[in-house]
Design a protein around this nucleic acid. Structure first.
Lengths: 256, 256
DNA sequence: GCCCATGTCCGTACGTCGTACGTCATTCGC
DNA sequence: GCGAATGACGTACGACGTACGGACATGGGC
């Protein structure tokens, strides 16, 4: 694994790819390609959705497209750039019509829910989105629309940026647990439930109630209703409520 | 890469390793080993701290210990289990003396700051901690101590669990950006600054102020003081403030 | 209508990874 | 001392990303 993730090559080439500023081959000699960037990206996204990012290899994507691995390099400089393209591509699914409307609270809630839904659809996108982002058209659009939801509330520009970043970070944080677990599931070929039921008796052997009294009372290990208490949606709803309450305090302060 | 991350083998073996319930080799025949689990884990953590988790290979860790790759398999079932051990190991650095004290707000703030500091020391631990956790002694201790900081506030057990999870998720979310960027840096061999200055002119070519007016005003791409506005500590401080404000609302409700 | 520059396609190969297997050397209980 | 159990580790396999270069199709300029 040389380049890990994200494009590392020529920035100009990366940007041209992201914004699809191809030469569009205005009648050059040479055979027509059956492939194009969009088809490759779509195939890669399909693989990632179904089997996780680790299943996305150049060989695999090429095979799904009925071609050989090296064929892809004619359209995409490398895997890093392909991953960048994948991320920007799925970001285009956000806010299909227009930015969220309503009260500031409704708008921010909608932003959080749309982002969460996107990440649940494409779990592999979570930790990509946390890193150095590909400055593609869909990321730009997302950023613009999200900033608009916190515009005109009396906040400073810096506060607006921080707020959008906070909300995105929160969603990533709550989803990443689900995502990492899902990745582990298909990597290990064992579901969350099976893993817990396999691990629980062994955990119980080491779980000392005297050393961990509070965890024993509250925690998911001891509790019977582990599932319900640990349900990711509940974590999300709970956290969103707290976060919006806290943002409300800020906005109240700003408006007076 | 067969097992990706986290142990997938025998749960009993994993737990015995995590809790160091070794047979302690009470005089068995065969040669003495110069290695033990602790030395292997420590070496792996050192590599991960310095060069990222992707630099942690069995060959590399073995080389740093002056031995061959396969030697490690006598002490550790596989890489997944080693990673589990690494994570639980560094979690032991949290709350060196006792749990945080003071007001609920001071306690929660301390929890957030200690976790953040840990993740900044060991960036690779961030996305491991998000997944299926290794139920080792240090994770148990962390969970117990953090639950105690929200005990006795009039919250339900479920709310206590959710609160601890929320705080941890927030810290992970804010740190993961820093971490992913750092990983990308050493993978690409280019610093954040260099990347931005290399990318900025190309970004500007596609950045349409008419399409993205709000982003143009607020965003880090256009702004001169990108650095200061985007500083990760500022994001953390800002988010923590909002979060604690929101938690305050909940605690106020619970106490009346 | 032909030529060749400009493409695409892809087989091969190298160096990385995790780790299964088998051989060998060491060191204990007796 | 000696048999047996155990640690060390060389070799090998199949995955990975991708550099290289040959085979081949195509279209514009003449």
């Amino acid at each position: 694994m040389a380049t890990e993730f994200t494009g590392t090559g020529d920035p100009a080439r990366s940007m041209a790819l992201l914004w699809r500023t191809a030469a569009t081959s205005d009648r050059r000699p040479g055979p027509k390609s059956a492939l194009d960037v969009d088809r490759i990206v779509a195939a890669a996204v399909t693989v990632a959705d179904a089997e996780g990012l680790s299943a996305v290899s150049m060989r695999r994507v090429a095979a799904d497209l009925g071609t050989a691995a090296m064929t892809l390099y004619g359209h995409v400089p490398g895997k890093g750039e392909l991953v960048d393209l994948m991320l920007d591509s799925v970001l285009g699914e956000l806010y299909p019509d227009r930015p969220p409307t309503g009260s500031w609270r409704a708008r921010l809630e909608a932003v959080a829910r749309e982002n969460r839904a996107l990440f649940l659809r494409h779990p592999w996108a979570v930790h990509l989105a946390a890193g150095r982002p590909p400055l593609g058209p869909h990321l730009m659009r997302k950023y613009e629309l999200e900033l608009r939801t916190v515009d005109g509330l009396g906040l400073s520009d810096v506060q607006m940026g921080l707020l959008v970043e906070l909300l995105n970070g929160f969603v990533r944080g709550t989803v990443s647990g689900v995502q990492e677990r899902a990745t582990a599931e298909q990597a290990a070929g064992i579901t969350e439930d099976r893993w817990w039921t396999a691990m629980a008796p062994h955990a119980a052997r080491f779980f000392d109630v005297e050393r961990f009294p509070t965890a024993a009372r509250v925690g998911p290990v001891a509790g019977k209703d582990r599932q319900t208490a640990h349900a990711p949606e509940r974590s999300f709803e709970f956290g969103l409520e707290r976060l919006l309450d806290g943002i409300g305090v800020l906005i109240l302060d700003a408006s007076r």
